Amino acid sequence: MQITWDQVFAWRSGRQYVSRPADAGVPEIVGRLCGVQAQVTSSAETAVALRSSKPEPGALVRELAAGTVVKTWSMRGTLHAITPDAAAAFLPLIASARTWEKPVWQRNFGATPAEVAALTEAVSHILDGAVLTREELVDALLSDPAFHRMGEELRSGWGALLKPLAWQGALCHGPAQGNRVTFTSPAHLIPGWRGLPEPDVAAPAAIAAYLGAYGPATPEAFDAWLSRNSLRKTTVRRWFSELGDALTEVDIEGRRAYVLSEYAEELAAATTGQSVYLLGAFDQYILGPGTADTALLAAAHRAKVSRAAGWIAPIVVVNGRIAGTWEISDADLVVSMFDGAPLPRKQLEATAARVASALGVEELVVRAA
């Protein structure tokens, strides 16, 4: 089946609630997106609010406190807010890469696989039925001399030693206490938590969820999004192959990729038109396919979106493609279009009103950078 990138972007925009905001609540939006990156909580709130027909301030934080959505280190080692079902689908696959057993990881973070195993067991015991701040958790661990040399790394806000524990389902973030991070176990936070399945059991749901939002895509794109290509290529390809007739291969202007068969006709019938949307920092629209996808973001402009220290800029999406960035200065929404393109002012003003509603401000005035 041959399709165009215009059709792909039109279909994705609908599936991701960009062109058709959802009447549903936070868990459904977060679930459809396979999680929202939550290194910066306000960015995660914005991603959800822009996709909701009735955005509510603090809606994501409330769902995190209720356990209907959970914050944990997941895709690419970054913090995401994800649904329990997504956690059960994606975490086993990420853990199966066993990145903490690789020599480069051990050199960088100073812990052996045996020490990570011991840390996992200790944290599972400490967090059984408990919610602790980072300081409380580290103090409890350091009461055991076996963990003394890990103290500095354990206190680091980057959480490198804690990420393998999150991937194995031993811990997740609990409700924040002011500015202080807390940790607990998924079993304590999430009602009815059943633990993590084996990777081969989890893979079909994980791939289906990803393709349902970011397809058509290749096994390599899925792995790049999930683990920064840490998994064995043969394993990822086998997972795709085992889905059999559930997947349909398509040709997108010369690129071969897979879509869920249940959406193949819908994708082929997708209609294109003029559209302009504003999406926030760290938005899944660009993170799902990845900033290296030149069909979505021209290579010449990648550094304007993917910036220093891992920052992903707020984006202007024109006809499905990334065409600029934006920022807020006082009451102004300042837009920088790529290649000196003129501002699509009328369309921007309409989508700026959605941004204002999502951010809980009265009005934003669009102006060029």
Rank of each mutant, 00 (worst) to 15 (best):
Q2W: 13
I3Y: 09
Q16P: 01
Y17V: 00
V18T: 12
S19N: 09
R20K: 15
R20N: 11
A24K: 15
P27M: 05
E28Q: 15
I29E: 05
C34Y: 08
G35D: 11
V36Y: 04
V36P: 02
Q37G: 04
T41E: 15
R51F: 01
S52A: 13
S53P: 01
P55Q: 11
P55D: 03
A59E: 00
R62W: 07
R62V: 12
L64D: 01
L64C: 10
L64Q: 09
V69H: 05
L79T: 13
I82T: 07
I82A: 06
F90P: 02
L91K: 05
L93H: 00
L93N: 00
A95F: 06
A95C: 06
S96Q: 12
A97Q: 05
V104I: 14
V104R: 13
W105G: 00
W105A: 04
A111F: 03
P113N: 08
A117L: 07
A118P: 06
T120A: 14
A122C: 07
H125C: 05
H125F: 12
I126K: 09
L127H: 01
D128Q: 14
G129C: 03
L132A: 11
T133W: 09
T133G: 06
R134D: 00
E136M: 03
V138I: 09
L141V: 04
L142R: 09
P145N: 05
H148K: 12
G151Q: 09
E152A: 14
L154Y: 05
R155V: 09
S156E: 11
G157H: 12
W158A: 14
G159F: 06
G159A: 06
P164W: 11
W167G: 03
Q168D: 14
G174V: 01
A176S: 14
Q177K: 11
S185K: 10
P186A: 07
A187Y: 03
R194C: 02
R194S: 15
L196G: 04
L196D: 02
L196R: 07
V201G: 03
P204T: 01
A205K: 11
A206G: 01
A209T: 14
L211D: 00
T218A: 08
P219A: 09
A224I: 10
T234C: 09
R237Y: 02
R238A: 14
G244Y: 02
D245L: 11
L247H: 10
V250Q: 00
R255M: 12
A257N: 13
L260G: 02
A264M: 09
E265W: 13
L267S: 03
L267I: 10
T271V: 10
S275H: 00
V276E: 03
V276P: 04
Y277E: 14
D283W: 07
Q284M: 12
L287W: 04
T291A: 13
D293E: 15
A295Q: 15
A298Q: 14
H301T: 04
R307C: 02
A309W: 05
V316M: 05
N319K: 06
N319V: 02
R321F: 12
A323Q: 08
D330S: 10
A331D: 15
G340I: 00
L348A: 02
R354H: 07
R354L: 12
A356V: 08
E363P: 11
V366Y: 13
A369V: 08
